[in-house]
Simulated scan of single mutants.
Amino acid sequence: MNELLSQFELNSQENFSILTFLLNIIIAIILLFILSKLYVKYGNSISNREQLSRVFILVGVTTFIIISIVKSSLALSLGLVGALSIVRFRTAIKEPEELGFFFISIAVGLGMGANQFLPTFTGFVLLALVIVLMKKNKLSDSISQNLILSLSTTDKNGNEIIDEISSVLSMHTTQLEMKRLNITKENFDVNFLINLSNLEGLQVIAKELKNLDADINITFIDSGI
């Protein structure tokens, strides 16, 4: 019973070490700073990555301070759960990648706040390697593009021009899927999802499509946007 009641005691200063606290928070800030640079350099978000990267440090350090305060008191931990249950974040996460980096920053704050340096540091290094390798692999292996074609009908009917476009795309892509087709009296729009092995393929495709119809309008849009 005494051990159970002791968990609710708010005074845990006898277990607090200012040296350990400062060392852990400095390490946490360094790791979070590295994370912010990784996001700026290797992130795919179209938003202002430089501005968002600063938030990772604030979130991580705030998490570190909270965990440092509540980790030795069950009463404070329960109070934190109750406080968080009434908090509502009004700013939506625009892209899943942003959520992933936020979780990494929170994990760093949790680990260092709980004085778990080795698993936190090891996990962070592995995640950093994964982020770098995934970006390198994406740049070297393939380029996913959403190809939007808009052209005016001439003496060819829609089926003929679509077959010719598909034939050109299939020769220079590793993946070809029609996603949208809109036909009117004057023109028709068609969207294809394609996968290219290199950037030069974009120029080749544009040239050959222009040979089919000089009035064709071609737009390349990254499918990640």
Rank of each mutant, 00 (worst) to 15 (best):
R49K: 12
V61A: 09
K71Q: 13
F56W: 03
F56P: 00
L52W: 01
I69N: 07
G79M: 12
T62E: 07
R54I: 02
T63P: 06
A83N: 02
F89T: 09
L74M: 14
L52H: 03
A83I: 07
K41R: 11
A75N: 08
V81Q: 12
S72P: 03
I57W: 01
L78C: 14
L84H: 08
S47C: 01
L52Q: 07
A83K: 01
N48R: 02
F56H: 04
I67C: 04
S45P: 02
A75Q: 09
S45G: 09
S53G: 03
I67V: 11
I46D: 00
L58P: 01
A83L: 11
I86F: 15
L76R: 12
G82C: 13
S73V: 15
N44V: 05
G43T: 00
L52S: 08
V81S: 12
N44F: 06
A92I: 15
N48Q: 03
V70A: 13
G43Y: 01
R88P: 05
T63G: 06
V87P: 04
T62W: 04
R88I: 13
I57K: 04
K71T: 08
I86P: 12
I86L: 14
L38K: 00
S68R: 12
R88M: 11
I86T: 10
S72Q: 15
L76A: 13
I57G: 00
G43I: 02
I69G: 07
V87F: 10
R49N: 01
A75L: 15
L58K: 01
S68I: 04
V81A: 14
S45R: 02
R90N: 10
L52K: 04
N48E: 00
S85H: 10
V59W: 02
L84E: 10
S72A: 13
F64N: 03
S45N: 05
T62Q: 00
A92G: 14
A92K: 15
F64W: 02
G82Y: 11
Y39N: 04
E50T: 02
I67E: 02
I69Y: 08
S72R: 13
Y42T: 05
Y42M: 08
I65N: 09
I69F: 11
R49V: 00
T91A: 05
G60H: 00
S77Q: 13
E50N: 05
S68L: 09
I86D: 11
F56D: 03
L78M: 15
L38P: 03
V61F: 06
S77D: 07
L52R: 00
S47M: 06
I67Q: 06
T91G: 00
S68K: 14
V61P: 06
